[in-house]
Simulated scan of single mutants.
Amino acid sequence: MYTDGTLDLMVMITQAAFKPPKEKEESYALIVKRAKTRYFPVFEKILKDRGEDFPVGHWFSWADIQLLEAILMVEELSAPILSDLPLLQAFKTRISNIPTIQKFLQPGSQRKSPPDGRYVEVVRNVLKF
């Protein structure tokens, strides 16, 4: 359930990149608003209610990776998105400091950057839309 929620948010961000400029900016603004008012407060509450370092179980899981990636994607749209969410801030720091994840997040790693105009154009040409 938690991974599906983060995936919904991530798909919205990915799809917005392919919209015309005005619609894209409106979509990004809506995504940031939803992340701030709907998605991230739920995860803040989950962490608070569980009193654990992880939203699921007592150890690191796929849900943690998904949540971290959703946070990073939204932060690319609005850097201070977690300013009112201290448990998610701590979660992000904790998960980002796992050595293998820390290495993956370094510049030059395999982590994909947000789609730029060139990438969007290539995809449009390949998919003919």
Rank of each mutant, 00 (worst) to 15 (best):
G51L: 08
F129L: 15
Q106H: 00
F18A: 11
I81T: 14
T93N: 09
D49Y: 00
V56W: 08
E69D: 14
L67A: 06
G51K: 07
K45A: 13
L67P: 06
G117D: 15
P55D: 04
E44F: 06
E25W: 01
F43R: 10
K36P: 03
R34F: 02
G5N: 09
Q15C: 12
R50V: 03
Q15D: 10
V56E: 03
F129P: 09
A16Y: 05
D4I: 05
Q89V: 03
L82Y: 00
E44H: 10
T37V: 05
H58C: 01
R118F: 09
S83R: 11
P55E: 07
S61I: 02
T100E: 12
V120W: 07
F91V: 01
S113L: 12
F54S: 00
S27P: 01
E75Q: 15
F43K: 13
Q89P: 01
T37E: 15
N97R: 04
P107T: 07
R118E: 13
E44S: 10
D8E: 08
R124D: 09
E23H: 05
D4L: 08
R50Y: 02
I71W: 10
F43L: 09
Q15L: 10
Q89M: 10
K33M: 04
K36L: 00
N125G: 04
K45T: 15
K19W: 02
